[in-house]
């Protein structure tokens, strides 16, 4: 069984926690992800710990897009893809698109 770990960060982890539930629903309904152990967590951006980062991709909510450079810098010693969630997808809680973006980022990082 393969595994995927996605981290969603915002200011306090509140708005992204709503998204986590919707993304998990998509995962549960997907047959192609049935044999994959998918972990999705929401947290405050301040809690990102480069030494103990279990995530293959960290997605930032658009309201903290201005912290992208700071977070990339923080993770410089243990780099993982850091990306800002598309504002429209985030606003409309389009969990499918956000999950696809995460999978694409992980795939691109693995291909490097």
């Amino acid at each position: 069984m393969t595994s995927i770990a996605i981290g969603l960060a915002c200011n306090l982890g509140a708005s992204t926690s709503i998204l986590v539930g919707k993304m998990k629903q998509i995962v549960a309904g997907s047959q192609k992800l049935a044999t994959t152990d998918v972990r999705i967590d929401a947290f405050s951006a301040s809690c990102i710990d480069p030494e103990h980062n279990p995530y293959q991709v960290i997605m930032l909510a658009p309201q903290i897009a201005h912290r992208e450079a700071e977070i990339k810098q923080k993770l410089a010693t243990h780099p993982v893809p850091v990306t800002v969630i598309n504002a429209t997808d985030f606003g409309t809680m389009n969990a499918a698109n956000i999950l696809k973006t995460a999978l694409r980022e992980i795939k691109a990082a693995e291909a490097k």
Partner: peptide, 8 residues
């Protein structure tokens, strides 16, 4: 955030 970015 959902309504702020969804409406937007």
């Amino acid at each position: 955030e959902p309504i702020l970015y969804g409406l937007p």
